[in-house]
Design a protein around this nucleic acid. Structure first.
Lengths: 229, 229
DNA sequence: TTCAAAGTATGGTCTGACCATAGTATGGTC
DNA sequence: GACCATACTATGGTCAGACCATACTTTGAA
């Protein structure tokens, strides 16, 4: 195996420190200079380690003084996931179709494994705002909230974070699709149907409604190729 | 909004360069010193940017000379996902139960949306090796391959990468579970059932078999709490 | 008591130096 | 001409020190 780089060792030691001290969201790490001294490494190695942790959404750095300054433990898995999706889409090692399929999977799972009915309230509030939305951009913003509410139904934070990342990734695409369609009545009907079936506890029906909705929203990506007679 | 940091700007410019030049896996980026000069920033900023890209699995750095040296575009989303899961489990912002549930979701989806039957061959080969496995460690290694084969059935690289990351994350847990059980016959029967139903094209049945299997493998995490009479 | 100014701890960036790594070029030897 | 040991060099990895930007804390005057 390759010799571990210094900053990798620093990551491991910070991770260990988190585990040993039972640190959790909101707790602070020592400053970069102090960490460097404690771990007997250069400050740049500490910085690279923190950069990695920040990328993965477990740490957030803030300059200045006071309780919020320095490296604070956070929980932002969705930003890491969003970056991941965006970059891999950019290098063509992932396709939009795969991302949309994943989204369908999560939403269908969520409506069939409801463990946190609070998501229904999020969905309901988003629906009302969608009705009042003036432009495509605003419509999509509330649409994102609606579908995040769907994911929240599962009570699974990993799925919720993934849904946030997915929507962030396809945001521009969604806005363009709504603008191109020029109408939102079909989509709104889909949303209401999903909401009502989920609220009624009909997971199967809601799953079908989700599939229908995504077929309307992304016809190019979900419609199977027409048979060649 | 916050002023973007220099290294974030560097990431964006590298990303743009990738898009503009149509770079894909295998292509090389200029060296750190040269990038710093081209972008008119310090080398440390370039390094931090590359560290982020490396963390997200889109580049891989290698010292020395020759065609493989320097920053090369790669596609390792699973390592980023694995790091993500491990760290967020460590800070208790994610639970093992959520990870296992996600795994169940992916496998059930895969057997019901088969788009790449090649996965069946991976599963079959893994099964044969599992039969011959001598210890828990070796058994779990092939088990991982089997379930990766299941994910591969979907033909969705995002799901396959996520499955790799999930298994990597729960690896130690899986080994301990197999050792504690002291027997693998029940698990093997589950695996064969999954394989046969998937091979027969019975997605529904295979999905049920996957659920049964995970219930056997992780009884503590999947069994609903017993009713209190 | 209030508020403006100075102080200070923190992250952000740059420069330059040196080390480690691993191909590549050179040149001697057979 | 073929082979191999040596020197070279381009690349990432690390460190030290300096300085800037930010934002809270302290000080002290009004």
């Amino acid at each position: 195996m390759r010799k571990p780089r210094t900053f990798e060792d620093v990551i491991a030691r910070i991770e260990r420190r988190i585990a040993d001290d039972g640190l959790t969201v909101g707790d602070r790490l020592p400053g970069e200079r102090r960490l460097a001294e404690e771990l007997q490494v250069g400050r740049s190695s500490v910085r690279e380690a923190l950069r990695v942790l920040e990328t993965l959404g477990v740490v957030s750095s803030q300059a200045g003084r006071g309780p919020d300054a320095g490296a604070v433990l956070t929980s932002r898995p969705e930003s890491a996931l969003a970056d991941l999706l965006r970059l891999h889409l950019g290098t063509a090692s992932l396709s939009l179709g795969e991302v949309i399929a994943t989204r369908l999977m999560i939403e269908q799972w969520a409506v069939q494994h409801v463990d946190a009915p609070e998501g229904l309230e999020v969905m309901r509030a988003a629906l009302e705002q969608m009705e009042r939305a003036g432009d495509a951009r605003s419509f999509v913003d509330h649409d994102v909230t609606f579908h995040l509410g769907v994911a929240l139904l599962s009570g699974n934070r990993l799925l919720a974070a993934t849904m946030r990342a997915l929507r962030q990734t396809i945001h521009a695409y969604s806005v363009a699709a709504v603008e191109a369609a020029g109408r939102t009545d079909v989509l709104m009907a889909d949303h209401w149907r999903i909401y009502e079936l989920a609220a009624a506890g009909d997971g199967r029906g809601a799953a079908q409604a989700v599939a229908d909705h995504l077929a309307h929203a992304y016809p190019a990506l979900t419609t199977p190729p027409p048979p060649t007679p």
